[in-house]
Simulated scan of single mutants.
Amino acid sequence: MHAVIPYVIASLLFALGVYGVLRRRNAILVLMAVELMLNAVNLILVAADATVRAVLDGVAPEAWAYPVPEPRSGAIFALFIIVLAAAEVGVGLAIVLQYYRLHKAVVIDEVVLDEHDHEKQVTG
């Protein structure tokens, strides 16, 4: 497989995620768009690790300008991002569900942060 393909796919996923965050009004869909962006970063990390390892495969470690990298360091970083994404989804979904219980809507444009602002909007 050519080394450019994962980078192009990751950039398309990241762009789709940015579009989803900027364009969507539903909080659940915004969380899904953030997940797309995190998965694009995971793909870049793993592809970069594989690319660097393929390039440095025939080179003696003494000739490297940097210390020998840990094996599969891109996958290790991707694992940390997956854990971070799971925590983000758990907390974000809990906040969205609590807001839905209170206000019966998850449209981001209608989110009211202060009760006094809500009273001003209702009374007009």
Results as ranks from 00 to 15, higher is better:
107 V>G: 06
119 E>L: 08
122 V>I: 13
104 K>E: 08
45 L>E: 00
106 V>Y: 06
41 V>K: 03
120 K>V: 11
81 I>W: 08
115 E>G: 03
81 I>H: 06
122 V>L: 06
29 L>K: 14
83 V>T: 14
66 Y>N: 12
21 V>K: 12
22 L>M: 13
113 L>V: 02
52 V>N: 11
39 N>W: 12
118 H>G: 06
118 H>S: 09
35 E>V: 03
42 N>Y: 05
95 I>W: 12
44 I>N: 01
45 L>G: 04
47 A>N: 07
100 Y>T: 03
88 E>P: 07
54 A>H: 07
36 L>I: 09
55 V>I: 11
49 D>T: 00
48 A>L: 05
95 I>H: 14
94 A>D: 08
118 H>K: 09
27 A>L: 15
55 V>W: 05
36 L>W: 07
21 V>F: 10
116 H>P: 07
11 S>N: 14
59 V>D: 00
88 E>N: 15
6 P>K: 00
36 L>P: 10
24 R>A: 15
54 A>R: 03
4 V>C: 02
103 H>R: 10
66 Y>E: 08
118 H>R: 08
59 V>A: 01
42 N>G: 13
30 V>N: 05
101 R>L: 14
50 A>Y: 04
25 R>H: 12
34 V>H: 06
114 D>L: 02
112 V>T: 07
31 L>N: 13
85 A>H: 08
122 V>W: 03
67 P>N: 12
56 L>N: 01
14 F>P: 06
73 S>K: 09
6 P>G: 10
114 D>P: 02
56 L>H: 03
111 V>M: 01
16 L>Y: 07
88 E>R: 13
57 D>S: 10
47 A>F: 01
44 I>H: 00
104 K>V: 02
2 H>R: 11
54 A>T: 05
49 D>P: 04
95 I>E: 08
57 D>Q: 14
46 V>L: 03
